[in-house]
Computed example of a mutant assay.
Amino acid sequence: MLRYITTGSLGSRVAQGRCFSNLGFALVEVGELEEAWESFLHAQQAFRDTDDPSGQWQVCEGLGGIKLQMRDPEKASQYYKDALQLLCKCQDVSSSVQERLVTKLSEALQQKLLLQQVGPPKQRAAPERQHHRQQKRRAAVISDTQQNRRPMLNGHT
């Protein structure tokens, strides 16, 4: 489907942007964040190419949402700020859209503060424990294998 959209067969760069944007939002709904990210990036480029601030702010909102789900509130905040700036260039936008973006920006900033207070997760502890567990499993497998071989060797001699 992405190949179809990118080949230009739709005839309109704006239409391409809308397709990628819609696909991005659909992929977020089913939890496919990496694919959604790529779709939003394609949409963002299409909307930049056509100088479409309405499409751009919507894509920034989607990118911000993905970053928030990925626990990257710093980047999420930036995307929400970008969305608000682009929203100012649009006409006839309801105040509820602006309120929604401000709420999301606030959530991202709160998450950022919380992460700063708690500190970064200990990323080394888990891999070290996992490595230790893997070593124990290997030792157990080797031990079991050696025990199973001895009777076989002893039985054949």
Rank of each mutant, 00 (worst) to 15 (best):
V59I: 05
D51F: 05
L84C: 05
D51I: 06
K67H: 14
L63H: 02
G65Y: 04
K75I: 07
G65L: 08
I66G: 01
K67F: 12
P53C: 04
I66N: 05
C60N: 07
L84N: 10
G65F: 08
Q78V: 05
C60P: 00
Q85M: 09
K81W: 04
P53Q: 10
Q69T: 13
W57I: 00
Q56A: 04
Y79V: 03
L63V: 11
Y80T: 14
Q56C: 03
M70E: 15
Q69I: 06
Q85C: 03
W57G: 00
M70F: 02
K81D: 04
Q78H: 06
K89P: 01
I66W: 06
C60F: 08
C60M: 01
G55V: 05
Q56N: 07
L84M: 12
Q69Y: 06
S54Q: 14
A76K: 06
Q78D: 05
K89H: 07
A76G: 10
W57E: 01
T50Y: 04
C60A: 05
P73E: 12
A83R: 02
A76Q: 02
R71I: 08
P53I: 08
L86F: 12
Q78K: 07
A83H: 04
I66Y: 03
G64L: 08
S77D: 02
C60Y: 12
W57Q: 01
L68Y: 05
L87M: 03
Y79K: 07
Q78Y: 03
G64Q: 11
L86C: 08
K75D: 02
C88I: 11
D72K: 11
E74H: 15
K67M: 13
